[in-house]
């Protein structure tokens, strides 16, 4: 538990600084096509097993099991509002450090970015020809924005 808190603190403290150091003209909006359809499909399969129990089949934070309480939405307007202005690297590091909640870090880096591609796809963002790479440096160049 202490390790997770420390990582989270690190992510949230350092990420904005790292973002601020990026050249603005190097930034890409997540609406400009940052993943492929195949990657989003792979991410859906991972999501279904690792994330869906808590975050719901519609990624709206509503678990199908009524015994479970709501969780944060992982797609669409409310998700984008929450993550507005931060980069995919921050999302990637946060997810990798904390999820799945009962076994953080149990997915591969490739699986984590595939899930992120699925989340972006469900949020309505277009697929393109390049896959998201599990590389914080390149992910830091994609910024999360609400629908233009």
């Amino acid at each position: 538990m202490k390790i997770v808190v420390a990582v989270l603190t690190l992510v949230f403290m350092t990420a904005p600084i790292a973002l601020a150091q990026q050249e603005i003209d190097q930034m890409t909006s997540v609406w400009e096509g940052v993943f492929t359809e195949a990657q989003a499909n792979r991410g859906q399969a991972v999501y279904d097993g690792a994330c869906g129990l808590c975050h719901g089949r519609r990624l709206n934070g509503a678990p199908d099991d009524p015994d479970m309480r709501s969780t944060p939405p992982l797609a669409r307007a409310k998700f984008l509002r929450e993550w507005e202005g931060r980069s995919l690297a921050v999302l990637f590091e946060y997810t990798r450090a904390t999820m799945p909640e009962n076994n953080p870090g149990s997915l591969t880096d490739e699986e984590f970015v595939d899930v992120i591609a699925y989340m972006l796809s469900v949020s309505g963002m277009p697929a393109a020809d390049e896959e998201l790479q599990p590389d914080p440096q390149s992910l830091a160049r994609s910024v999360i924005q609400q629908q233009p």
């Binding site: 719901g56 519609r58 709206n60 934070g61 509503a62 199908d64 099991d65 009524p66 309480r69 709501s70 969780t71 944060p72 939405p73 409310k78």
Partner: peptide
């Protein structure tokens, strides 16, 4: 019948009539 996810196909679904829309906590805004 808001505490279950039963769908058509089970013989008692007709007693629910609808499965409901699970909006999560976030949907209440």
């Amino acid at each position: 019948d808001a505490y279950t996810t039963m769908m058509p196909g089970h013989p008692t679904f007709g007693f629910r009539g609808s499965a409901g829309v699970n909006v999560g906590n976030a949907g209440f805004e």
